[in-house]
Design a protein around this nucleic acid. Sequence first.
DNA 1: CGCCAGGAGTGGA
DNA 2: TCCACTCATGGC
Length: 321
Amino acid sequence: MDKLYISSPANFSFSECTWYLDRGYDDCGHRVRNGRLLKALRVGGKDLLVEIGEGVGGLDVTMLHGRADERTRELLAAYVREWLDMDRDLTPFYTLLQRDKRLAYMCEEYKGLRLVGIVDVFEALAWSIIGQQINLPFAFMLKRRLVEKYGTSIIYNGEVFYLFPSCEVLAAASVEDLRLMQFSRSKAAYLIRLAEAFAKGELSREKLMALPDRESRLQALMKMKGIGVWTANYCLMKSLRDPSGIPHGDTGLMTALTKHKIIKERTELSKIDRFFSRYKGWESYLVFYFWRSLSEKPERAIGPAPEAGGRINSHFPGARP
DNA sequence: CGCCAGGAGTGGA
DNA sequence: TCCACTCATGGC
């Protein structure tokens, strides 16, 4: 069995990361079971299924599917470090949090939580378009339908693991196809156009990173129909790893700011700016920790593991009158 | 039934 | 530049 080991940095908590990934939504992009994280992913043109578990002083990564040469192993290690943001020193962030009585609790409560990212830029943008203005359970359901119809899959022990669809495949989909899955007409059009842009190479991680600064990256992203301020910043913080992305207009963020008594009304934009100005260089992390704060840490229901096969038969709506 | 969800585009003042 | 309106549907 192909295995590799990734040593953990200080202030890294695998369990905090997996808790976030398994915080109660039906995310088809990965699975958490018995403290281990399973994910199908693509590196260097190869589809792999990996299991990540906690070892002594680091993470044990096991390849359940796919054989890895030396280069693939390197790319896989880099993927995991990137996904869980393991190459970052959180000390300055925690120092800033400690200064605010309202937020200091986060240092203990979420200690070691990393900004769990979306490594693939196309996936990050597609996901954020899907999630615009709808509640998260519905957004995850839409994503699952899209992935199960257009994504490739790996079967392991009778269980299906999906990879997010490629831009080429999604570019060939039609608005009508997506409408049947309950995407709005405009969202369907945005997604397909985005897929075309990536398929043609008009947009890519390389092109975005080649731009001089984050302002120009925001502008480049927002030229796409369906990508506004929120989506562009979401992409910056979750995929391009910009430390200062603030998804302005995010309702979850507003809720968290209100709960923490940082603002009273959602219209106090200048107050929000002033607040974030104390966290220069850590805005993305602060937003992520705020999102984390919106999910309570429940006594997880201890039940039987999901039956083998997973949820491969999502409910599709019937034709509407 | 009404309002809100980890928004964005459009059209009119 | 700044509204109001529209899109879609699930959850509460």
